[in-house]
Design a binder for these strands. Structure first.
Lengths: 418, 418
DNA sequence: AGGCTTCCTCTAAGTCGTGAATCATGTGGC
DNA sequence: GCCACATGATTCACGACTTAGAGGAAGCCT
């Protein structure tokens, strides 16, 4: 929950309400007492706040908890049906749109693939709009029930006036995706980098859950991270923090597709792994994006007799270990979570070796406090994480209904005139 | 200013008071209107708050600002004489204790050097106590006027119950420095890593001033950083974030004193620079810590005919550039500030080359938003930064006088009993 | 002096969270 | 079946806070 600025007495209520809601969402169901302890308010205030939230349908009471002798504690929870959110994963080869309820149950989903090598922004926008309409229809909800739409994109997202996307790998240069998506749709819209939305998904529901300082590593064709610092996504000054793939692990090393040399991605990116294998086999095979996954899988599962595969994997573990050690030294996280399709593929085989290498390269103290884990969520994590964006926004606002505001304003004026 | 949790109406005032104070301290002198705008409160509240601060002597009115036609605006400022702070720099070879007023004017200072190769904790503690008494006497202030003592140490500082220091380079393993210093001194005490205090000094008063996302690099025998994220020091889970010196820039590269290989420090640390020079000259010279600085200086200022020096410097720029590019990619700062005695020494000669290398290695978007600068503060920056620690603490508390609390409590009880 | 402009402060009103008292809702004993 | 008991939840009076708007303060110009 971002540091909401609290200056007036009214802000106070909003902020307390938001804290209670976050707590209920993240750790619910909870008793009123637990909410009070977490939000730092008295029982009286909890009662007051919860009463309001119950009345507005944001929160529901789900069962009772036995107490030894006295009145049982009521268990509270955010109402999964209070509203719905849409998460969109704009991938390099496919576009996934999913509709969730607030408990993150998938209520509808829609996939569309593209044959284009480069993504055309307008085409993407049209498909997103189409997908959103499709999932709303499919789930049978009214569009007023949609709290917002989150979009995860491949590339850096500048959050200025409206989101602008720079996606080197898909040929996007300063695409004003925010404005384009908003045109023809009036749902609240939030856009972020796909690696960051995946990170948020792992933080909320996956392997980084409960950790306030974590680094989620995304391995695929590209190599990125999502950094959680003090419980929040770390963005840096222009939201491009966490570009781990192009950190230098070998001065004057291999050529990277970014133009520089010695980048981590030039060693552990999916294309690099396959290319290094082919080099060892002294053959030149053109790498087609569609086949990348099975080619990497073939290397991972190769027979022990395949010396080239063994060497490539060994080197990959070395570079990955060194790279992760850098993250541990610089960010001092409690957990490093390795995800992305390539991460899932390499995980079981390589993780023990990666841990060993990282232990050698990282400083003792920070390393002794870190766990290096496999991601828990699967392929849809980017869309799931994208859907958390509008949820975070709703929770931080305290889920104040526009209608409530209008109502109280009407009451005010009627009293003023009456 | 850390995210103070505001739940009750009283917290509200405290938080508004703290915001106003921070603003006045950082950007003063300011008019009441400016304070109101910055703190987000109405003129009435500013008047109220400022009145209290003036009465308590925390803030003073310094002159008037002309207005076009009306009553002139009063200019407010934190009272430099409201209290004093002590900053201590526990260096590897010398110990510096300085006493500052709130405007950071040095009022007294005390140096003591040591001949020991390894620092003895109890010896350091004694010297610190001695130094503090000396500067208090020298400045002629009463110890009640000391708001607190900040200490910058070489090594990682774990902020648990009380500060515990792990200083590999000085042979400290889990030294409970907090408890040791507190014993025999009852001033408020704050301890942090020297690189971090230096970073805070540059952020408050130096080259990183006004930047909410900055990385301050400290070059010396060791190589560290201090990371400012969203205006605050980034610590990570165990306060050891920013250990840049032992990130890997060359897999399977040079041996580093930390035990690993290929660390940045093994290339650009002071000892490494001299060692590499000696290797090129094909000679083995024992490096004495005392002579390190002049030996590096000799390399930097060597005649162009000294090919070995040129090569060492060139390589240093390459590694430093790559390392800084990593920081830019990972943290996406607005500024990178290069400091430390080695940084100062290398700065003018090397910085242009470092920028070039960094530009090649960093991604375009984050690099286009970053400035790579030399530090502005000199050798005493660690002590200066250490002294900012208690100031930050006072500002965040809103400078609520203990006496005030007692007084109001007395009033309460007298009214209750009366 | 008097009007004017601008800054500052005082007052009344509205909102909030808290603590103490009260109400609600269960268990266990008889 | 009834009543004491324990504990959770709610209500109410109170103090504390910020704000809007009115009024005072302090300088300038005519």
């Amino acid at each position: 929950m971002p540091g909401t600025r609290t200056t007036t007495v009214r802000d106070l209520r909003k902020s307390n309400r938001a804290r209670a809601l976050w707590e209920l969402y993240m750790n619910g169901p909870l008793t009123r007492q637990e909410v009070g302890a977490a939000a730092g308010v008295s029982p009286a205030t909890v009662s007051n706040l919860v009463g309001e939230l119950l009345e507005q349908g944001v929160v529901i009471e789900v069962g009772l908890e036995d107490s030894n002798g006295g009145r049982p504690r009521g268990l509270l929870q955010v109402n999964p049906e209070y509203g719905f959110v849409v998460g969109v994963d704009v991938g390099e080869t496919a576009l996934l749109v999913e509709l969730f309820d607030l408990s993150m149950k998938v209520r509808a989903s829609h996939v569309s693939t593209t044959e284009l090598a480069r993504l055309d922004p307008q085409d993407v926008v049209d498909r997103v709009h189409e997908g959103i309409e499709a999932v709303i229809a499919q789930a049978g909800v009214r569009s007023e029930q949609i709290l917002g739409v989150g979009v995860g994109v491949p590339g850096l997202v500048e959050h200025g006036n409206d989101a602008v996307v720079h996606g080197q790998s898909v040929g996007w240069d300063a695409v004003p995706l925010g404005a384009m998506l908003r045109d023809g749709m009036d749902l609240p819209l939030l856009i972020d980098n796909g690696a960051k939305t995946l990170g948020q998904a792992e933080k909320w529901f996956g392997a980084a859950r409960g950790s306030d300082n974590a680094v989620i590593v995304l391995l695929g064709i590209g190599v990125g991270t999502s950094i959680i610092s003090n419980g929040e996504l770390y963005r840096g000054s222009t939201s491009s923090a966490g570009e781990w793939g192009h950190t230098t692990v070998m001065v004057e090393g291999r050529q990277c597709r970014c133009g520089a040399v010695g980048c981590l991605e030039a060693y552990v990116g999916a294309e690099a792994i396959v290319a290094r294998y082919d080099e060892l086999k002294r053959r030149r095979v053109e790498i087609k994006p569609r086949e990348l996954e099975e080619r990497v899988a073939a290397i991972v599962t190769a027979a022990p007799s395949d010396k080239a595969a063994a060497k490539v994997l060994d080197e990959t573990a070395t570079y990955l270990g060194a790279g992760i050690a850098d993250l541990v030294n610089l960010f001092n996280p409690e957990r490093v979570v390795v995800g992305g399709w390539l991460g899932q593929l390499l995980g079981d085989t390589l993780l023990p070796r990666v841990r060993e290498v990282a232990a050698r390269h990282a400083l003792r103290l920070p390393f002794s406090h870190v766990s290096i884990l496999k991601a828990q969520l699967g392929k849809d994590a980017v869309a799931l994480g994208a859907a958390t964006l509008p949820i975070a926004s709703v929770l931080s606002s305290g889920a104040v209904l526009p209608s409530t505001t209008v109502r109280s304003r009407l009451l005010d004026s009627s009293r003023a005139t009456g």
